[in-house]
Amino acid sequence: MRPTRTVEFSTGLFVLLGFAALFFLVTQITNRELATNGKSYGVVALFENIGSLKPGAAVSMAGVTVGRVETISYDQQQYKAVVHMRINSQFDKIPKDSDASIMTSGLLGGQYIGITPGGDEQYLKQGDRIEFVQDAFVLENLINQLASTFLRRDQGSADSGNQGGNQEKAPAQEPKK
């Protein structure tokens, strides 16, 4: 009636294996806090447009991940997006005048924050704000800019003569960023 020892053993093994797999998935696969040894400090930056930046996105310098985006919220007074980041404590020599821009990794990759160092001798500390930011690249704006530039140029050349079909049409290329 009672299952044999072997049966109980293999069942126990099976259940343990299941929980081990679950544990593995939860800890290794998900964005639990920071990857490295916990200690971090928080800085904030305000953007006019964050594009598709999400919480948990990487914060990197020179391509190396130094932190994570913690929260993103909207400030109704300043009409800007407020991005709180946590930087790993071991990277404590980021100049105060560094530049935070929102970049895209690859064509399908998510957006992340890239920090380009400035020259200040003072470094970012807990609670500091990064002053210099560059918003996310928005395709529509660029096309508008390009369109208005060519429009002005056409009008200029139409005024100065009859060039007819000599219109440079620059192919609409996405700058690789």
Binding site: L22, L25, V26, Q28, I29, T30, N31, R32, A35, G56, A57, A58, T65, R68, G109, G110
Partner: peptide
């Protein structure tokens, strides 16, 4: 490979699967 995975897969996805 792992960091991109970690940043895109959340606990809620795993809960979905379970």
């Amino acid at each position: 490979f792992w960091s991109q995975m970690r940043s895109s897969v959340g606990l809620d996805d795993i809960m979905e699967g379970v």
